[in-house]
Amino acid sequence: MEAQVSTFSPQGMLMPPEDNTLLIVDDDKAFLQRLARAMEARGFDVEAAASVEEGLASLKRRPPAFAVVDMRLDDGNGIDVIATLKEVRPESRAVVLTGYGNIATAVSAVKIGAVDYLAKPADADDVYNALTASPNDKAPPPENPMSADRVRWEHIQRVYELCNRNVSETARRLNMHRRTLQRILAKRAPK
């Protein structure tokens, strides 16, 4: 299979090559459908998958030139999809989406070959810009970054999930009183 070469527009944006196949893997079905429609409107030939298993089957059937993959899926980790994609089609460009953003997972995603890492909710313009950006461009600062309270809440939720939803173990690892943690977990996510 011959690699398709992308070209750059006068503004420095990477123009999609003739092979504009895009795989989107996300277990949030409403978000998946909206993003798929939006990316089709931007000229991509989209295939959608709602799980790691569906994503792996799709990329083995037809390895895409581009991929957008959620980090946490019901049946596993989106990093597995990107790792397999990079084995099958090394020149592909992948973006990782996640609601549980932290530095360790961002580093893992980039190490396996993701070109960018976006926190949810990312809109179609953010995804398109990440997929088509020149490799030398620096990402612009986010328009609406998460508040400090939201970042704290996301971190607590991530540690809680990693501890298999065990409140006592999570409290111990976060060096926090168990009842304080229970009150935080009972509240909704801050804006």
Rank of each mutant, 00 (worst) to 15 (best):
F8A: 15
Q11A: 14
L14H: 10
M15T: 12
M15W: 10
P17R: 02
L22N: 07
L23T: 04
I24A: 04
D26A: 03
L32E: 08
Q33D: 14
R37Y: 15
A38Y: 05
A38H: 08
R42S: 10
F44W: 02
A48S: 11
A49H: 03
A50C: 10
V52A: 02
G55H: 01
L56F: 00
L59F: 01
P63V: 02
P64W: 00
A65W: 10
A67Q: 06
A67F: 04
V68I: 04
L73W: 00
G78N: 04
G78R: 02
I79G: 06
T84F: 02
L85M: 02
R93D: 09
L97H: 07
N102E: 08
A104V: 12
A106G: 10
S108E: 15
V110R: 09
K111F: 07
V115D: 15
D116W: 00
D123A: 03
A124R: 04
V127C: 09
Y128R: 09
N129H: 15
T132Y: 05
S134V: 07
P142Q: 06
E143Y: 13
M146P: 15
A148D: 14
R152S: 11
H155T: 10
Q157N: 12
R158A: 12
E161M: 09
R165I: 06
T170I: 01
T170Q: 00
M176H: 03
R179I: 12
L181C: 03
Q182R: 13
R188N: 12
A189K: 06
